[in-house]
């Protein structure tokens, strides 16, 4: 129906633009609306202390969600990120308590993340395992390893410089939020402005077509999982600094929050659709719900229900948008 396509084409660009903008605008609007309502409903929300707190709370899930988004765009999934966070808190705290200088301890921890991501890539590309399975396996195994080396106990970090970082601010903005920016800027360049980003989408859309176009599909998959695990290791360091502890189970379930943030931010679990700013907004929407619910003294269980409802509504609107195309 070439005729049909062209005639529709005259109307379509404007409409498509509207819907695309609508989604990102609606996310910003949801966030703003929550900010306004919470500022009116509580005296405690719009205080510098609480906003900083919110920024810290949202920061870690936001970084996880960005890494997760890379993987989801390739039509994969990384279930291990929560476990990597917990595991790397153990690694970094053991190193620091063992007397390793902080910068070296952090570097080693991040390299551990890279190694875990590379292992995922190996499992998927070389062993042919589905992403769901290989990352589910490392989720379980990493918790086991983490519990084994700490004998199930929690390591307390006594280095005040390290733990002080998470409480600190720079130019009035919490350090943890600065990390989000430090991660997001290269992430935006990578995904939206470099050829590697284009390859990521192509692999998620049709790996065979990408391959026959000369894209190194295996390399792209390795990269996506390494970046996801690296983001998780960064979050591990942040969490260790914030809680002052190393414990393999302290980020249990975060992978689901990361995936939820990504999906709320417009990432399609079928691959090839997603942005960097979407999951960032998604993560801070979730953090605001949690923060607001606490301030309003809402039973914390309600947070789960609200989050679930929000995922359904936002993804439903996304489906509508797709159908309209």
């Amino acid at each position: 129906m070439s005729q049909k396509t062209t005639t529709q084409g005259e109307i379509a660009p404007r409409r498509k633009l509207n819907f695309n903008n609508l989604l990102s605008l609606s996310l910003v609007a949801v966030l703003l609306l929550m900010f306004i309502l919470l500022s009116i409903a509580t005296t405690t929300f719009a205080t510098p202390g609480n906003i900083s707190n919110l920024a810290r709370q949202g920061a870690m899930i936001a970084i996880l969600a960005v890494g997760e988004t890379f993987v989801i765009i390739t039509a994969g999934i990384d279930l291990s990120v929560g476990a990597i966070v917990g595991f790397t808190t153990v690694i970094v705290s053991l190193l620091i308590e063992g007397g390793v200088p902080v910068p070296i301890a952090i570097t080693i921890t991040l390299l551990v993340g890279v190694a875990i991501g590379a292992f995922h890539g190996f499992g998927i590309v070389r062993m042919g395992l589905p992403p769901f399975i290989i990352t589910l396996a490392t989720l379980t195994a990493l918790q086991g390893v983490g519990l084994l080396i700490t004998n199930g106990s929690t390591i307390n970090i006594t280095n005040d410089d390290f733990t002080g970082f998470s409480r600190g601010e720079f130019l009035g903005i919490p350090n943890l939020f600065w990390i989000v920016i430090v991660v997001a800027v290269p992430a935006v360049i990578y995904l939206h402005f470099s050829k590697y980003g284009r390859y990521l989408y192509a692999v998620g859309s049709n790996p065979e077509a990408a391959r026959l176009s000369g894209v190194n599909v295996r390399g792209v998959i390795y990269t996506a999982y390494i970046l996801s695990a690296l983001c998780a290791a960064v979050v591990g360091v942040m969490l260790a600094s914030r809680t002052g502890t190393g414990n393999a189970t302290q980020a249990n379930g975060w992978e689901l929050q990361a995936i939820a943030s990504s999906v709320i931010g417009g990432t399609s679990l079928f691959g090839a659709v997603g942005t960097v700013w979407g999951p960032l907004l998604g993560a801070f929407i979730l953090a605001t719900i949690r923060n607001g619910a606490n301030l309003l003294n809402v039973n914390s269980f309600w947070q789960y229900i609200i989050t679930g409802g929000l995922i359904i509504i936002i993804v439903y609107f996304d489906q509508l948008r797709r159908r309209k195309r």
């Binding site: 360049i189 050829k195 077509a209 990408a210 176009s213 894209v215």
Partner: peptide
Amino acid sequence: RDQGLCLNLGVGHNINLPVYDRLTKGVTI
């Protein structure tokens, strides 16, 4: 469908796929 195209990506994205190397200046496209 199976080998030639990334169907849910843009026309331009598909056309450029083999030549992104050449469309890249420095780090970015």
